[in-house]
Computed example of a mutant assay.
Amino acid sequence: MPLVNGFKLLEIIKERHVCAGAYNTTDLITTMGILDAVEQSKIPAFIQIAPTNIPLSGYGYIFDMVKRYADKMETPVTLHLDHGKNFQNVVDACRAGFGSVMTDNAQYEYDENVAHTRQAVEFAQGYGVPVEAELGAIAGKEDDYVNPDHKYTDPDQVVDFVERTGVNLLAVAVGNVHGLNLDPNIKFDLLKEIQSVCKVPLVLHGASGIPDEQINQMVNYGVVKINVASDLRKAYIQSMGKDYEKDNDRFDLVNVTLDARKAVKDVVYHKINVMNKLSPAQVY
């Protein structure tokens, strides 16, 4: 089916009581590997790209790539902007046809975060797409930006933040980290407290480093979207590296990239199963 609007995808997720992975792409090979796995699993998903990865392909090219594949799929998919760091990122994504966007203003103090988020929400409303925002700050390495410290989401701010911004999804900091080099420590008691007061669905970033046994609990804590990036990039690069090690005179780029596509697919398929507590027999 064609790409669906983020609001529609959230409805489907709620109806099916599943947790949607949000998988970061950069190029055609990563995109196809992700969507291969999503279509095989039949579990709805977000495919997303951060502005730091946009210079390689551009908003329009990413939209065209994802749409061309999604048009042949049965499983609903939304194209999402991940970690829009300024208002222009949101504008560019909406104008390119993205079905949902994230405005990440966690680097600002609370009131400034509210103001920037509200601006993004008001603009995105004109395009009919949902907006995700972050409250608190997630430690770790996000592309070229490194945040060494956790700033946990304050449950006492959640109600006010959601009401004042009009945001549709809330990314929380509960011990999750970006990247693969820090040890995540999910505070489920904090996550439960946030769930009890938050009127919008929750999002968990930094799932690459979180153990499977913790990931498969998230659907019971109001989490509808779980972001995975580092694991996919690692699989892609390692696949190409292994092919080179086997034969450093190789020049058959098609087969090397097909191996990388399958490596990405395998990681995504595993993550989908873990998020939704599925056994292989349950994936149809």
Rank of each mutant, 00 (worst) to 15 (best):
R233S: 02
D212M: 08
S239T: 11
R164P: 00
N276R: 00
K246E: 05
L182F: 10
H205A: 03
N248I: 11
E193V: 09
N181F: 14
V274R: 01
A139Y: 03
K246W: 02
A173T: 13
A173P: 08
V219P: 05
A133W: 05
I210C: 01
G166A: 08
N147L: 14
D143P: 02
H270C: 04
I272P: 03
Q157H: 15
Y269A: 11
N147R: 14
V174T: 04
D259C: 15
A139N: 04
K271V: 06
N181I: 13
K265H: 14
I138M: 03
G140E: 01
N227K: 08
Q195E: 14
Q157D: 10
D149T: 08
Q214V: 11
F251D: 07
T165N: 12
N185M: 15
G209S: 11
K199W: 09
I272W: 00
E142R: 05
G241R: 09
A263H: 01
Y269L: 09
V129W: 00
A137V: 10
Q157F: 10
V223A: 06
L180Y: 11
L202Q: 04
K262Y: 10
A139V: 05
N248H: 14
Q238W: 09
F188D: 11
G166E: 08
D252I: 11
V223L: 05
H270M: 04
I272E: 01
E134H: 06
D249R: 12
I194N: 11
K199G: 08
A133Y: 06
E132V: 09
N216G: 03
V219N: 15
M275I: 08
P130A: 08
L190F: 11
V267F: 05
E134C: 06
D189S: 12
E193K: 15
I194S: 10
A263N: 00
G140N: 00
R250F: 13
L135Q: 06
I272G: 01
G241P: 02
N276W: 01
C198V: 03
Y221E: 05
Q214E: 15
V203E: 00
L258H: 15
I237S: 09
L191G: 02
G166Q: 09
K225T: 07
A137E: 13
Y236W: 05
G241D: 08
L204Q: 02
N147F: 15
I272C: 02
N248M: 10
V267K: 11
E134K: 04
D231T: 06
N255A: 14
D266E: 09
S230V: 05
G140M: 00
K262E: 12
Q195W: 11
V267C: 07
V159N: 06
A263V: 01
G175D: 02
L191R: 01
L169S: 14
V254M: 15
I186C: 00
S208P: 08
V219H: 11
I194Q: 09
D266W: 03
I210A: 02
V197C: 12
D266Y: 07
Q214F: 15
V219S: 13
D189R: 09
N255M: 13
V268E: 00
I194P: 07
L253I: 14
I194C: 08
H270A: 05
L204N: 02
E245N: 13
P211G: 12
L191A: 02
V146L: 10
P148M: 01
V256Y: 13
